[in-house]
């Protein structure tokens, strides 16, 4: 079974530090990497950087499970 899980409250929501580290590294690689490899004529670096960030963000959203337990309550008649 899964070993003990530890979550921390960062910026108002629970996170797993390992996942957070992966996500930060991935996103910085995405934005900064995109910015640097782009052809050096504005606005291309910015566009590549933003695109890199968005790709990294989507990748993280797919691979990292949100640490939220969402319960939906049915509205009572009140």
């Amino acid at each position: 079974m899964e070993k003990e899980r530890r979550y921390y409250d960062v910026w108002g929501d629970s996170v797993d530090l390992k996942d957070l580290l992966i996500s930060i590294v991935l996103c910085i690689t995405g934005t900064l990497g995109g910015y640097i490899i782009a052809p050096n004529e504005p606005p291309m670096p910015l566009v590549f950087g933003l695109a890199g960030g968005v790709i990294a963000f989507i990748a993280c959203s797919v691979f990292i499970r949100p640490k939220r337990n969402v319960h939906a309550e049915e509205e009572d008649a009140s």
Partner: peptide, 24 residues
């Protein structure tokens, strides 16, 4: 948003943007 967007990815994206703009 709650079920599909992990908080980690948001902090990551924000960190990525800040680092890129700092570099820029």
């Amino acid at each position: 948003v709650f079920k599909r967007i992990p908080h980690e990815a948001l902090i990551g994206l924000f960190a990525g943007l800040v680092v890129m703009l700092a570099f820029m």
